[in-house]
Computed example of a mutant assay.
Amino acid sequence: MNISSLFCNKPTLRPNPLKLIHSYRVRLIGILVMALLRFSLFGTVTISTEGKLSLAGVLDNILLASLLIWETSRAVVLYTHRRYALQLSIKRFSLEVLGVFIANGVFYSAQLIMHEGLQALKKTNPLFILYGLFYTFLYGVLVAAFYELLFYMEAWKKATQEAEELKKINLLVQLESLKNQVKPHFLFNSLNTLTALVEKDKAQAVKFIAELAQVYRYLLQSNEKELIALVQELQFTQAYFFLLRTRFGEGISLRVEVEEDLHSCLIPPLTLQILLENAMKHNQISARKPLIITIHGEAGEWLVIQNNLQPKRGIIASNGMGLANIAAKYKILNQPEVIILKEVDFFTVKVPLIKAEAA
């Protein structure tokens, strides 16, 4: 599979709900459709009672009324979405319905007063007033429901796109990780280490094989998962570090100090493996100048991965894909941004911990 093709597919031509929400054409068509509906009701009643339908009545009670009902109801929906953008709750919908009722009630009352006058209005049958208010409110609800549908379509489209993008990033991370693991020099070094252990310490060689198997088992099992429990990621990291420790000896050390109450939190799989690889790639590793990597929690919301800085001599080629993929995955998951700090003596990465109930 060509990885670049994942990001270079031709876009499918689909209506953009967000553009439809602000489209003047949609608004004009909607107002005309509402005018036809009102004409079928108001016009029929007027003709049956008065025997004729005046041009002023058409312009005022049909076209102007349709315009005001549509625009006021649309304004209420847009306002509630700005005010409660991320809330899909009964409270938001209740406030929206109430806003549509008040806005159209004010318009309908003003229309009655303008046409009938206060004195004549007092003599009007209350049922007639309530009926008019009801069907004016009903039109407003239909307009609000139409725009809610457009917002829902936009949210669904965005969620679908983010899900597809997350799948692509997952695939890239998995392939990058597997490439780092199975590339010839890694296998060569692992087999060399194993050969030396078999000759010197058979018990240690058996443990090395077991940890190596655990590393590959985790890589295969995490392929289809977007998130994994921190405790599982830490267990995998310990197994992976055992291979590194066996190879580099005193040249590398790992300190894990993560509170147990954080173990149930979730993170994207292979996050720690990528960060360990990144630290090894850019720093010297020797018994005289050991690379020290620490992992600990912070404020119950962050996982902090830090290593001492001792850059390798010369220029180290890097495409930055590892850190970029981690940051992109958290962004798509609507989590806080990954924090990357490069100081004089330390390089620190802070990744958000995702609560299991919020996933």
Rank of each mutant, 00 (worst) to 15 (best):
V304L: 06
R313N: 15
L254N: 02
I293D: 02
R288H: 12
V304E: 02
Q273Y: 06
T294V: 07
E260K: 13
L270K: 04
Q273M: 05
P311R: 14
H296T: 10
A327V: 00
A299N: 10
A324D: 08
A317H: 14
I267W: 02
Q335Y: 04
I293E: 10
G297D: 14
Q306A: 09
I295C: 09
A324H: 08
P268N: 13
I267Q: 00
N308C: 10
P268W: 04
I274Q: 08
E257Q: 09
Q284R: 12
E301D: 10
K329D: 04
A287Q: 14
Q310I: 10
W302S: 01
L333F: 09
L272V: 05
I267G: 11
R255G: 01
S264R: 05
D261C: 04
Q335M: 10
L275R: 13
E298A: 09
A328D: 12
L303G: 07
G314H: 06
P311W: 08
G322A: 12
V304A: 01
L303I: 02
Y330A: 03
A317F: 05
L276T: 04
T294L: 09
A279G: 14
L270V: 12
K329W: 00
H282S: 08
I295W: 03
T271K: 03
V304N: 00
Q335V: 02
A299G: 02
Q335E: 01
A327K: 15
Q310K: 03
E277W: 04
I295S: 09
L333H: 05
G320C: 06
L309W: 07
P311M: 05
L270I: 13
D261W: 08
P311E: 11
N319W: 10
H263E: 02
S253G: 09
S286M: 06
P311T: 11
H282F: 15
T294G: 08
Q335P: 07
L262Y: 05
A317Q: 13
L254G: 03
N307Y: 00
P290D: 12
I326W: 01
A287P: 14
S264C: 05
P269H: 07
E250L: 13
L291K: 07
